[in-house]
Design a protein around this nucleic acid. Structure first.
Length: 279
DNA sequence: ATAAACGCCTGACGGC
DNA sequence: TGCCGTCAGGCGTTTA
């Protein structure tokens, strides 16, 4: 489901206590965990996971690429939502003490000492959770954050020059850059007037700089609008109303009026204005 | 080194 | 109504 802006929105809502029920997850102590689908856990068995996480307190929550990083007092829990994951925070029990029923496709639940719970819902079962005391083993392979202002135009240009790869799959490669997904990549390439199949090492410094600027702009706008809501999966954001090309095949380009085209690039549905974005 | 093909999964949607 | 193909915000592994 989510790309960088959606994950950032979820992280902030968990931190602010605005996720579904007004509970700030920071400071919550985990009383127990329920694992409803074993393979949700990437690096640990359900038994060890339950054993290790019980009693730990959530000290901080942040985002790295598309990962949610829960810093606990002993370990770190990493959550990747992949295509269809979501986190709900809600009451776990009725006033009479009975457990409130879980939702279809809930795969893992943390029960807090406060009586609230956090449920990892994941219809397509692609999402994964890690519990580790060495999170760098997972996060260390990620490329830089596009919104990190210490990433300079010169550095970004040098990164592009280091590969002879099609621009879109390269930008979406999490080892190259962390956080770009299918939608925001299409939107950034449209704004920068770049064809998704452009070979990375052919970009001039000015075009590379424009690309980085447009990526940052579109990501920031996405965050400001709380992400994009499409399909049945993610709710809450409204950036989908500002898409220029994604999901708009057959419609007129907002810039020049040419019909927007859908094509496949790197096995992913890709939307471009064939007039504005030429190789 | 690069890219395609495929696997992992469930659900929504459009066409017939 | 039901069935079928296609598509989906991701990513790892295998193959060419």
């Amino acid at each position: 489901m989510p790309e960088l802006p959606e994950v950032e929105t979820i992280v902030r809502s968990l931190r602010d206590g605005t996720r579904h029920c007004g509970l700030n997850v920071i400071g919550q102590q985990v009383r127990a965990a329920t694992v409803l689908w074993e393979r949700t856990l990437e690096n640990i068995s359900p038994q060890i996971f339950q054993q290790k996480i019980a009693g730990q307190t959530v000290e901080n929550i942040h985002r790295r690429g598309k990962f949610l990083v829960f810093t606990l007092n002993r370990d770190t829990m990493l959550v990747h939502l992949r295509m269809s994951g979501d986190l709900r925070v809600e009451a776990g029990f009725y006033p009479d003490g009975n457990t409130i029923a879980l939702q279809p496709h809930d795969r893992l639940v943390l029960w807090f000492a406060s009586g609230q719970r956090m449920a990892f819902n994941n219809p397509r079962k692609f999402g994964r959770v890690w519990l580790t005391d060495t999170p760098q083993e997972v996060l260390g392979v990620l490329g830089p954050e596009p919104l990190d202002e210490t990433l300079t135009d010169q550095q970004f240009h040098a990164m592009l020059l280091a590969y002879k790869r099609m621009l879109k799959p390269l930008l979406m490669d999490q080892h190259f850059l962390a956080g770009m997904g299918n939608i925001y990549t299409d939107e950034a390439l449209f704004r920068a007037k770049l064809h998704p199949r452009t070979i990375s090492n052919t970009l001039t410094q000015p075009r590379s700089t424009l690309l980085l600027q447009e990526m940052r702009k579109v990501l920031k706008e996405g965050i400001q609008r709380n992400g994009a809501s499409i399909d049945w999966v993610y709710r809450g954001g409204d950036f989908q109303n500002d898409f220029n090309v994604y999901g708009r095949a057959g419609e007129a380009c907002p810039r020049c009026g040419t019909e927007i085209v859908r094509m496949l690039v790197g096995q992913r549905g890709t939307h471009i204005c064939p007039n504005c974005q030429q190789k």
